[in-house]
Design a protein around this nucleic acid. Sequence first.
DNA 1: CGCTCTATTGATAAACCTCAAATACAGTGG
DNA 2: CCACTGTATTTGAGGTTTATCAATAGAGCG
Lengths: 226, 226
Amino acid sequence: MLINLDKSEMFKGLTSEQFEIILKKGKEFHLQPKTELFHQGDCAKMCFLVRQGCLKLIKLNEQGKEVIFRYIKSSELTAATAVLRDRKYLVSAECVEYTEVIGWDKKAMLQIMHQYSVVSINMLSIVLDRIEEVQQRYLDVCTENVDKRIARSLLRIMRLAGVKKTDGIYIDIPLSRQNIADYSGTTIYTVSRTLSGWEKKGWLSSGREKIIINDPHALVLFAEAT
Amino acid sequence: MLINLDKSEMFKGLTSEQFEIILKKGKEFHLQPKTELFHQGDCAKMCFLVRQGCLKLIKLNEQGKEVIFRYIKSSELTAATAVLRDRKYLVSAECVEYTEVIGWDKKAMLQIMHQYSVVSINMLSIVLDRIEEVQQRYLDVCTENVDKRIARSLLRIMRLAGVKKTDGIYIDIPLSRQNIADYSGTTIYTVSRTLSGWEKKGWLSSGREKIIINDPHALVLFAEAT
DNA sequence: CGCTCTATTGATAAACCTCAAATACAGTGG
DNA sequence: CCACTGTATTTGAGGTTTATCAATAGAGCG
């Protein structure tokens, strides 16, 4: 069992027996890195819980430019949209590493929600959290400079996927300059320049698709400076 | 009765009798222009349905810069967040004209949602719509130039608050350059210059806090050009 | 070692913001 | 009706930020 019920916003309030029953109703998917779980425009058939690994939730504009809304790690839900009739995914989800998910189709999920009403409330709560997150990021991109946005992006990703070691907090997913750019609403060039600057200050160290935050406190101060 | 049940996403699927009962459980508020219905940071006590008038949903950053997320007109819901425990409003709502709303506190709304389960589903549906709207706008602000963003903003507002007359579509709320800037993630100067250009082309006419879209088709073409 | 993909860096340019000043407009009170 | 006042809007000049382009360097992999 890789999912921690205590950490699952979606199924909290249930007993582990109920949780087990629900898990059995879902279908398992095992996905290799860089494969897509679902694609924007497709009919929304299933919603998913990540059992292991990591997804990135993205959206492309007509010219193919990409933004990353969030990374989704173990125990987290995505594609809540799929529990309602006649919707399409308006975002895509792609694995950033080997990932296992459990998917429930509309019918199964609705049945679960009717049987365990707390699940509906949990889902509403999750969706409200997500709205607040995008709203904050929208505000950021409208009102803050790039360097601050990049700092905030790194901190968000760090809080989600950071692993503390003696010399700093390691970002535990492959994270390229392009990813950081797509997450911050900027370009790889600006990200590269900005990170180089912070590396000189000793705030972080980085390699190919690797980031280690050595001085999270300094980064927080910078990100939240007025 | 000013609210049209048919148009209310929140209470669709109910009979008018049930709707009447629910309305009676709420509390009426009559608000003058520019007053605040709720403020970011405050404890989220009530959620609201607009009965008449118009709200703007905004968020301020630490320096006081404002973004507008949406305008909320008659029959629309806001502050869904308030049905769940221990939340704060992370946005503010301000009247842009004389506005009447009906508010339900947590207890009343939860009771309604339990009694009429369709209301919970409706609420989830609304919140999912809103997420998709912010996500689209986030994508826009990250990937599109200002002029395109301004065009898309005007069209959104037009679809919400436009009144068709012989010479064009009148935006039926006071809408300043500042409002358009806050809605598009830019400045009044850029909005002014951009609108002046479009006015020369005959796409729209404008006055002090007034906008008339004379050629919506041209504006759509511009907004959706690849 | 050569191939591919990612990252860096400098030079340049474009987009957009900021500031300042002038102008237009709506409402108010004489 | 008109002057007055407080906003809203316009416009130009100039500056900043950030994107773009081009070229190079580095990392990982077979």
